[in-house]
Design a binder for these strands. Structure first.
Length: 101
DNA sequence: TAATTGACGGGAC
DNA sequence: GGTCCCGCCAATT
């Protein structure tokens, strides 16, 4: 576990229930501005039974970056938290965005 | 070693 | 709102 991963995990863990944030913001708040892609790569290689709310992280356009069944999986989790997400995986970022602490 | 790839972002138009 | 394009960084090819 390198420092980068630890910081990112910690930051994602801070996202409140029913709220979302972006890859870029996670990286920035964690102290690694410009590392949005690495955040995504980290989420893609998460341990199976992780308790991390990874589903609360979307891209800057306010849409889920996954495809097919994986997209539906993340969408379902968000909807269960009260977040409105279109079938294509798009949500109103202005409304659900979390602006840090 | 070089080119490509990806759960990305922002600016220009 | 949309599209195009370029910058970004590590892992993979």
């Amino acid at each position: 576990m390198d420092d980068f991963s630890a910081q990112i995990y910690t930051q994602v863990h801070q996202i409140p229930h029913g709220k979302v944030t972006t890859y870029g913001d996670i990286a920035k708040f964690a102290g690694f501005p410009g590392y949005a892609r690495q955040v995504g790569r980290l989420m893609a290689t998460l341990p199976e039974g992780s308790t991390l709310p990874w589903h609360r992280v979307v891209n800057a356009k306010g849409e889920i970056s996954l495809t097919g069944h994986d997209l539906q999986r993340q969408r379902r989790k968000l909807i269960d938290e009260g977040v409105e997400v279109s079938e294509a995986g798009r949500l109103k970022l202005k409304q659900y965005r979390w602006d840090g602490l």
